[in-house]
Design a protein around this nucleic acid. Structure first.
Length: 433
DNA sequence: TCTGGGGTCCTAGGACCC
DNA sequence: TCTGGGGTCCTAGGACCC
């Protein structure tokens, strides 16, 4: 059967989340910053129009911000995560087949919905999501995911499309591809774009008309798949049930360089605890714990990256075991006298907790294992209700800074409107006489 | 001068995504 | 002075196996 995919993409998602609770921001240039208020990671259309690029470091944008009175927000992930869940929930009512692709995007399987008029359905979705959640979205519909992405672009940019665009026939497809730059094709990043441009391939249509064997040779199977998808031949399926993660990572850049062994060790312990929590939430255990520490990579002269792994005796997601493994690895990467700018832990060799293999030399101690499990369940429960990090391992340290995550600076934070009782928005009714 | 023919697993690096 | 935090897949090369 012919496939049909819709890509639903939230417009300027983080900015839109801020606007839902702060309508004053409507029509103003707004930007949202990365962790530590380092880079610009989301921009409203007004900010884009002032040519503020994605990823620009805040300090480089200061004068623009002052000059145009741009509104600046630190990222508020509890809010964005909750708003995302609302949007995804609402989308679920439009089709049984859906893949949540990222915090602000989902693919919908719309095969069999043709009788409703696909583009009208796109508009219905758009209106409903705006009404139910306050978040504006665009909808792109086509025979493959890659084409749906391009249709989504058109939906967002074109005034006539008004938020929903469908690529129906061959002629429309060629027409749209001719207007799409290489760089704007999903799956083609800056490196390949440069390589293709150097071959005189400028638009998506040029690429579409490139011989498959050439693409296969220079861009591998990944490039060849993108090519076929552009031709309307689906190579990427809808993944309704996301496969288990293969790695879990927790890492941060530090607002100020960390120079003491104690402080760096405490961050690593904090990351390890957070990673163990993430594993428990997905019922995964890991067999390799990797720790890395880095100095400032913008200074190649002094750049240092240390990375080491340690294997817990049996795969686990028990915080004390993970922390222990992480701290063993930490010992081999620590170097005195350096200015550390970031660190992280990676959980590798993830498997589902119920699939742990028996060990010849470590026979299972079911009683002890059950106790560990109950301990962690209690641990998670307390941290859920009392605030994350309320309960923590001593190795994380007892300073206040350890409680709130590690050394983050967030000067422009909006309230956690939807996930924290004390920060709920307050509606004041005014009586008119 | 001559040096098998497969396989698997792991790691590092390069590309991509949001 | 100040530069995010996650993920994925593919490929090549080396170690090791029979």
């Amino acid at each position: 059967m012919k496939q049909t995919f819709a890509l639903v993409d939230c417009n300027n998602f983080f900015v839109s989340c801020e606007r839902v609770f702060n309508p004053r921001l409507e029509g103003c240039p707004v930007i949202v910053l990365s962790n530590n208020d380092g880079c610009i990671i989301a921009r409203s259309n007004e900010a884009k129009a002032l040519s503020i690029p994605m990823g620009m470091p805040l300090f480089k944008a200061r004068s623009l911000i002052r000059h145009y009175g741009i509104e600046v927000y630190s990222s508020n992930y509890p809010l964005y995560g909750d708003m995302s869940a609302r949007v995804m929930n609402a989308l679920g009512s439009f089709t049984p087949n859906m893949e949540i692709y990222s915090i602000d995007e989902a693919f919908l399987g719309l095969a069999g919905f043709e009788h409703r008029g696909l583009n009208d359905y796109g508009h219905d979705i758009r209106k409903a999501i705006k009404k139910w959640t306050g978040i504006p979205v665009s909808v792109g519909i086509a025979e493959t995911k890659t084409l749906a992405k391009i249709a989504g672009h058109v939906a967002k940019k074109s005034v006539e499309a008004d938020g929903s665009f469908t690529i129906t026939d061959e002629a429309t497809r060629r027409d749209i591809l001719a207007q799409t730059l290489i760089r704007d094709i999903w799956g083609i990043g800056s490196r390949w774009a440069r390589m293709l441009n150097s071959q005189g391939i400028e638009t998506a249509l040029d690429f579409h008309d490139t011989p498959e064997h050439w693409v296969r040779k220079h861009m591998g199977v990944t490039g060849a798949r993108t090519l076929l998808e552009l031709k309307g031949q689906p190579c990427l399926d809808l993944e309704s049930h996301p496969p288990d993660k293969k790695t879990i990572r927790v890492s941060r850049s530090f607002a100020k360089p960390v120079t003491t062994r104690q402080a760096l060790r405490e961050s690593v312990a904090a990351f390890a605890a957070r990673a163990a929590e993430k594993m428990r939430r997905s019922s995964l255990v890991c067999s390799i714990v990797n720790v890395f520490v880095v100095t400032n990579h913008f200074d190649p002269q002094t750049y240092y990256r240390g990375s080491a792994s340690s294997h817990p005796p049996i795969p686990t997601n028990h915080t004390p075991d993970i922390t222990r493994a992480a701290l063993i690895a930490f010992e081999s990467v620590w170097r005195p006298g350096l200015q550390f700018k970031g660190a992280g832990v990676m959980m590798l060799g993830l498997i589902r907790a119920e699939n742990i293999q028996g060990q010849l030399f470590f026979p299972p101690d079911t009683l002890a294992d059950a106790r560990k499990e109950r301990l962690m369940a209690a641990f998670d429960k307390i941290n859920t209700s009392a605030g994350s990090n309320a309960l923590r391992m001593a190795s994380v340290g007892v300073n206040e800074r350890a409680k709130s995550g590690v050394y983050t600076v967030q000067k422009h934070h909006s309230p956690r409107y939807t996930t924290c009782w004390s920060e709920l928005p307050i509606v004041r009714a005014e009586a008119s006489i």
